[in-house]
Amino acid sequence: NLAGAFELGDIKALLKEWVTSISDPMEEDILQVVRYCTDLIEDKDLEKLDLVIKYMKRLMQQSVDSVWNMAFDFILDNIQVVIQQTYGSTLKIA
């Protein structure tokens, strides 16, 4: 779970609050999102992972702060490595 949130709706709301209320994301928060996504991979919940990543991509790439774009790239890179190790292929993010 992410900061006590389990449901996709709660996760999305939390991510939106994070991206819209913070201009300079902390490394600890970014790592926490990576850990949450890694847990989804371990739980084989790739459908939820896909939705979470696509939502983050929309949120973070909409942001005028380039630091959020970099944060998304960092999160995605880390997740793709874990997926590659677990499934032998990467997730296609359209």
Partner: peptide, 20 residues
């Protein structure tokens, strides 16, 4: 309450807020 590092980041704060 103490102000540990977990309390100063966004998700740490949110988690402690929800726990109350």
């Amino acid at each position: 309450t103490s102000k540990g590092s977990a309390m100063s980041n966004f998700f740490g704060k949110t988690a402690s807020r929800k726990a109350k």
